[in-house]
């Protein structure tokens, strides 16, 4: 149990809190999209500006692609949220989550000169809460807690016992 020694209780508590809260937020995003009848990412994508706007328009104009994007969004968010909360495959979940949320950010970054018809959360310039959440997930990758407080513990133990047996 190398990891335990590197965290104080306070460090561990705050890191786990961060993990649980981001996991909660992402899971609820996924679940609420699942519960909205006929939810489609097209509304969001139509707003897309800056570097990804061409790609987003391409998605909207291809129905099949749009359906896949919708499906991956809903179930991707749910899987990532579950992974973070349960502490299961957390590294994969955090990396995937950071990537996905960074793509959301790139679609509507609060850059000077870009204006959106949808309301945005708070007053932001260049960095917004979406980007901060993505960086938060990177912190979770850098300081993993799931093998101490999470189902990943069983996986890491299983691996360790396997290594011991081989020795």
């Amino acid at each position: 149990m190398k990891g335990t020694k590197t965290f104080t209780t306070f460090q561990l508590t705050t890191l786990v809190l961060l993990r649980l809260m981001i996991g909660w937020q992402i899971l609820y995003e996924g679940i609420s999209k699942l519960l909205i009848p006929n939810w489609s990412s097209a509304v969001f994508l139509r707003e897309s500006q800056w570097v990804l706007s061409g790609f987003s328009n391409w998605i909207i104009s291809h129905d099949g692609v749009l359906q896949v994007v919708n499906f991956m969004n809903i179930w991707g968010l749910i899987a990532i949220g579950l992974g973070l909360i349960l502490g299961l495959f957390t590294r994969v979940a955090a990396i995937a989550g950071a990537t996905l949320i960074f793509v959301y950010f790139l679609n509507s970054p609060p850059l000077l000169g870009l204006e959106y018809s949808l309301p945005t959360e708070g007053n932001c310039l260049i960095f917004n809460k979406t980007l901060i959440e993505a960086v938060g997930l990177l912190i979770l990758v850098a300081f993993p807690t799931s093998s101490i407080m999470g189902l990943d513990m069983f996986i890491s133990r299983f691996k360790k016992s396997k290594i011991k047996k081989e020795e």
Partner: peptide, 10 residues
Amino acid sequence: LKALIGIPVL
């Protein structure tokens, strides 16, 4: 118990 912290949260 620590490993199962996610369950009550869920």
